[in-house]
């Protein structure tokens, strides 16, 4: 298995299912698939392919509810392409 570059954790019960993270993700791994419903009745996104996460943080930047925590595991200070978008 390839080394993880980044990881997103979702505080699912804080999420309101607005979807702003889904369009912010440069690698399209945050999707609504209707697989989960939180305590408020909203549908949080699912991370379909965690291995693709670059840890860019775009999803969290767009989250109005600060429901996302993003970590990056790349050692170099490389700037993910998405930051230049």
């Amino acid at each position: 298995m390839a080394e993880l570059k980044g990881r997103v954790r979702i505080a699912t019960n804080v999420c309101k299912g607005c979807g702003l993270c889904t369009v912010a993700c440069p690698v399209d791994i945050m999707v609504f698939n209707g697989n989960s419903v939180n305590l408020k009745g909203y549908q949080p996104p699912t991370i379909t392919e965690p291995a693709k996460c670059t840890g860019c943080g775009n999803c969290a930047q767009m989250c109005p509810d600060s429901a996302l925590t993003v970590e990056r595991f790349t050692s170099k200070k490389e700037d993910p392409a998405c930051l230049k978008a």
Binding site: G6, V14, K16, G17, C18, G19, L20, Y42, G55, C56, G57, A60, Q61, M62, C63, P64, D65, S66, L68, T69, V70, E71, R72, F73
Partner: peptide, 29 residues
């Protein structure tokens, strides 16, 4: 490993009353 994004200490634990997707939540953050 570095934390790229975590909820700010400047925010309380109170969930907002804003409608889903309202960008007020981003601005106050």
């Amino acid at each position: 490993m570095s934390v790229i994004f975590a909820k700010s200490k400047g925010l309380t634990d109170q969930e907002t009353h804003y409608c889903p997707g309202c960008t007020h939540g981003i601005i106050q953050r």
